[in-house]
């Protein structure tokens, strides 16, 4: 079982590259006052909201929903 940040990076990297994937993960952690490594399953909702906000303008909803399902599946 992967940690939340590892799972998110593994799914988002092939989609938007490591830099943008890291922006999604670190941005979420920062908004919660945590580091990326400290993100846990309880932070999934916040991460999903952040991914939807950042990826919404660059990818169709179906792609974002699929990415979120994959992240959940890796936890």
């Amino acid at each position: 079982m992967a940690g939340l940040s590892e799972a998110a990076m593994a799914v988002l990297d092939p989609l938007v590259g490591a830099t943008a994937a890291s922006t999604c993960v670190r941005g979420t952690a920062l908004s919660l006052g945590k580091t990326a490594e400290d993100l846990g399953p309880d932070d999934l909702a916040a991460l999903e909201a952040n991914i939807k906000r950042l990826l919404g303008p660059v990818a169709p909803e179906s792609v974002i929903d699929d990415a979120l399902r994959q992240i959940e599946g890796r936890l």
Partner: peptide
């Protein structure tokens, strides 16, 4: 180019 090999690029 900042998206690297990301498929959306």
């Amino acid at each position: 180019r900042q998206l690297g090999a990301g498929r959306l690029a």
